[in-house]
Each structure stands twice: as structure tokens, then as C-alpha cells.
């Protein structure tokens, strides 16, 4: 029998978790949808943002707000350069996965070299908690949910209501046609990579202050993004958003009603079941 408190907990935490997952996964989805790339290093941007923020705030005593914008700007630039210097040159999917996986390992080891394996902790920006429908929510989480909602709306507006978005969608739909109408696909893809890494960084900065950071932080997030994007349909904004909510709610429901040990497995079973029923995912292209 599910109590009203348990139902409220699932409802509130599921909503917050899903929003953050959506923000992170939309970046991964963009990379696949537009650039048709599977970036195995995507989780590492999540980790890199957490460490950069930690270093700026804790080591250099830079105010949190400045750190936030500096980190996002740095990640955007890193994504841009990452495309221009590395990804642009790779055509084969296997080569792409191997190269990006290698880059992820290099970044991870650089982090270990610079910061060691200490489980560091970034200071909480908004301490304390607030009751939402009778459920205690950390103020940091509440801010993360509001920021993630805003950013998801802004991302939607960017993709569907601006010229830049039109270019992104054109490249995603038909590369040759996009070139014919004067769009520079490489520039668009570099922009998408910058945007995606910045989204990974944003998701990280919103939630990591409430926990600890380790060099392997990004790997479970990569698995999660992969599951969401496959479930939603590769490269589909709406599908990714919906899939993030499915995965987020499944995880939180299993954590609260069954056991936290099974929440990861439950998400993957959900993905498998959905793909069995709808091989193209909820909205998108065929996984094949």
C-alpha cells in the first residue's frame, strides 16, 4: 500500500530528477541528431564542469555566480574546439566511439593528476530546504529544477524559434540540402558541440554542490543519457524530454517503493521494454 507521503515524495523528487536528466540528455541527443555522432566523452564534460567549479570556488575563492558563468563559457569553448580539432576529422562510427572513449579516459586521468582521487565537495550555494507538497526539498535542488526548466524552454526556443535553430534542424534533417541553402554545416556542428558540452556542464553545476565529486562521476551519467536518448528516439527534442521523465520517475519510484539498489536496472529494463514495443523509441528514428 502506497502512503500519501510516499506518493508525494515520488511525485516531487521524480519531477526534479527528470528535469536535470532532461537537461543533460538533450545535449547528448543534439550531438547525435545534428552531428550524427556518439560522443563517449560526453559524461566527462559533466565531471570537468564539477572540478572546474570546485577549483574556482574553493582554490581561487572566485564568487559562485562568476564561477558558474566562467565554467559554462569554458565548456562551450571546449566543445567548439573539441569538434573543430577532433570530431570533424572522424567519419567512421567505431572510430568515433573509440576516439571519444579515449579522450574521456585522458580527461579522467588528467583530473586525477590535478585533483587526485579525493572525493571533493563544492560548497552549497543555497543551503537549507523547503517543504513542497509536504516533501522536504533542498533549496539547491529547487533552484536546479527552476533553472533546468528555464534552460529547457530556452533551448526549445533556440532550436524551434531562431535562425540558428533553423540551421541546426536543417543540418539534422538533410545535410546536402542545408549546404544548398547556404548553411555551413561544420560551423553549425561546432556550435552544437559547444551547446551540448555547456548543457552537460549546466546539469553538473546545478546538482553536484549537494553531493561529492569524483573523477568517475560522469560515467553513470553517460549511461543515463544514452538510455534516455535511445528511449526517446535518437535526436528528438520532445522524445528526449519525455524519456527523461520516464527514466527519472521510474528511478525515483523504484528507489522509494522497492529498493535504491534496483533503480538503475529498472531504468534499463524500461528502455528494453519500450524498444521491444517501439523499436524507433518514443518519437525518433530507428535505433538501427
Amino acid at each position: 500500500m502506497i502512503t500519501s507521503e510516499a506518493a508525494a515524495t515520488v511525485l516531487v523528487y521524480g519531477f526534479i530528477t527528470s528535469l536535470v536528466y532532461a537537461l543533460f540528455a538533450e545535449g547528448f541527443s543534439l550531438i547525435f541528431g545534428v552531428a550524427r555522432m556518439i560522443d563517449a566523452a560526453y559524461g566527462m564534460w559533466y565531471t570537468a564542469a564539477a572540478y572546474m567549479s570546485f577549483a574556482l570556488v574553493t582554490v581561487y575563492n572566485i564568487p559562485s555566480l562568476v564561477t558558474f558563468f566562467a565554467t559554462i563559457a569554458a565548456l562551450f569553448a571546449a566543445g567548439f574546439v573539441y569538434y573543430w580539432a577532433v570530431l570533424r576529422r572522424i567519419k567512421d562510427h567505431i572510430e568515433m566511439i573509440m576516439t571519444t572513449f579515449l579522450i574521456a579516459l585522458v580527461i579522467q586521468n588528467l583530473i586525477v593528476l590535478l585533483f587526485t582521487n579525493f572525493p571533493w565537495s563544492t560548497p552549497v550555494v543555497l543551503p537549507g530546504s523547503t517543504l513542497v507538497f509536504g516533501v522536504s526539498v533542498f533549496n539547491q535542488q529547487l533552484a536546479a529544477a527552476i533553472a533546468a526548466s528555464t534552460l529547457l524552454i530556452l533551448l526549445w526556443l533556440l532550436i524551434y524559434r531562431t535562425k540558428v535553430g533553423l540551421a541546426i534542424r536543417s543540418v539534422a534533417q538533410d545535410l546536402d540540402a542545408a549546404v544548398c541553402v547556404g548553411i555551413r554545416p561544420e560551423r553549425t556542428m561546432a556550435l552544437v558541440l559547444g551547446l551540448s558540452t555547456a548543457l552537460a556542464g549546466l546539469a553538473s553545476l546545478l546538482v553536484t554542490p549537494q553531493s561529492t565529486i569524483t573523477p568517475v562521476l560522469g560515467w553513470p551519467m553517460l549511461t543515463l543519457a544514452f538510455a534516455i536518448v535511445v528511449l526517446g528516439g535518437l535526436g528528438d527534442y520532445r522524445g528526449t524530454l519525455l524519456a527523461a521523465f520516464v527514466i527519472g520517475y521510474v528511478e525515483i519510484a523504484v528507489q522509494n517503493l522497492v529498493s535504491p539498489l534496483y533503480s538503475g536496472a529498472a531504468s534499463l529494463i524500461t528502455v528494453l521494454l519500450t524498444l521491444w514495443l517501439r523499436p524507433k523509441g518514443i518519437f525518433g528514428r530507428s535505433v538501427e
Binding site: T3, E5, A6, T9, Y13, T17, V135, S136, V137, F138, Q141, V207, T208, Q210, S211, T212, V216, L217, P220, I252, Q255, N256, S259, P260, L261, G264
Partner: peptide
């Protein structure tokens, strides 16, 4: 009584159930 995976970072659900 609950175990947590060694990669767990968000304990909100645990705390909510303990509070309940």
C-alpha cells in the same frame, strides 16, 4: 533499512523515507 550503491549521490529518497 536500506543499502545504497557505492555511486549514490542523491539521498533525498532515503531521507524522505526515514522522516516518514
Amino acid at each position: 533499512a536500506e543499502l545504497y550503491p557505492t555511486t549514490q549521490s542523491d539521498f533525498s529518497s532515503y531521507l524522505a523515507r526515514i522522516k516518514e
